[in-house]
């Protein structure tokens, strides 16, 4: 028991570089596997959250752009969606990594007011920035398509009612179209969020190196499976963590879904159904 507490103290933040430097080499205990794989989950959560939050805004912009009447606004959005939805995420990671490696190594000073930091292009070759950017663009494309579909099915009557009230342009979008679009898209968007978290496991298997063995959950699970030659322990642990993460995502998105649907009578509300049909 005490040994396990020690292990937790040593390894629970190993994936972000705190605690014991060397990974366990022999005599792997269940406790070590649970702790390290759980530690790796920090990366999965980080990538998922960054991509989801940033991707949400780009996705809205892309959906609106794809719905635009102007050829020059619509086409780029269509191409963006086609590019990221039509190719495997795995290839996108490789391609992005090779591109970032070839970029000239320069730094840009950014004044944050209280301190000055130098943003360098070599950060792009690191997983924390480079992979996050790829995931961000990827989820923006997938969610953009979902939002576009929802935008198309916003009831005509709602928009006409907004017109009748004298709303137009930005206020009409913000107060009428956008909330309805989100409400209609939300069940599908929940699925997208779940599979985005699943997709984060690809990061350290696709070009981006795990610096100082700081990897995500699958990286550590794979490490243990390679070392013990026994896949029946680490992968179920990984599965356990991901099921919990999935349940959390469904919980949070369910709450938002409830809020988006709160003005509707009970029988018209949309329920969230997990439909596991999206891998990249």
């Amino acid at each position: 028991m005490n040994a396990c507490l020690q292990t937790i103290a040593d390894y629970s933040f190993r994936s972000i570089g705190f605690g014991e430097r060397l990974l366990p080499k022999t005599d792997f205990t269940l406790c070590q596997q649970f702790t390290l794989i759980g530690s790796g989950m920090l990366w999965n959560i980080y990538f998922g959250l960054i991509a989801l939050i940033a991707g949400f805004f780009l996705a809205t912009a892309i959906a609106v752009a794809k719905n635009s009447n102007s050829y020059w606004v619509r086409k780029p959005a269509e191409w963006f969606i086609f590019l990221f939805r039509g190719s495997p995420l795995f290839i996108q990671f490789f391609l992005a990594y090779e591109t970032f490696v070839l970029l000239p190594k320069v730094g840009v000073d950014i004044n944050l007011g209280f301190t000055e930091i130098t943003a360098e292009t070599r950060w792009l070759t690191k997983a924390w920035l480079g992979a996050a950017i790829v995931l961000f663009l990827n989820t923006a494309a997938y969610s953009g398509e979902i939002f576009y579909g929802a935008l198309k099915s916003v009831p005509k009557g709602d928009v006409e009612a907004a017109d009748a009230y004298g709303l137009s342009g930005w206020p009409r979008f913000k107060r009428i179209i956008w909330p309805t679009m989100l409400r209609l898209a939300w069940p599908a968007y929940t699925n997208e969020a779940i599979f985005l978290f699943h997709a984060t496991t690809l990061v350290f298997f696709s070009g981006f190196p795990a610096w100082q063995q700081r990897g995500d959950a699958l990286y550590y699970a794979n490490y243990f499976a390679d070392k013990t030659f026994n896949p029946f322990v680490p992968y179920p642990i990984l599965g356990f963590y991901f099921i919990i993460l999935t349940l959390c995502v469904i919980g949070v998105y369910g709450l938002i879904n409830k809020r988006l649907n709160r003005h509707l009578p009970e029988n018209q509300r949309q329920r969230i159904k997990v439909r596991p049909q999206i891998i990249r």
């Binding site: 978290f197 699943h198 997709a199 496991t201 690809l202 298997f205 699958l218 699970a221 794979n222 499976a225 030659f229 896949p231 029946f232 992968y235 990984l238 599965g239 991901f242 099921i243 999935t246 349940l247 997990v274 596991p276 891998i279």
Partner: peptide, 20 residues
């Protein structure tokens, strides 16, 4: 099985598990 767990984990798992 595919509902909550990343598919990549299954790919890595089954290759060793089936072989064994």
């Amino acid at each position: 099985i595919v509902r909550g767990i990343p598919d990549i984990a299954f790919f890595l798992f089954f290759v060793i598990a089936l072989d064994q």
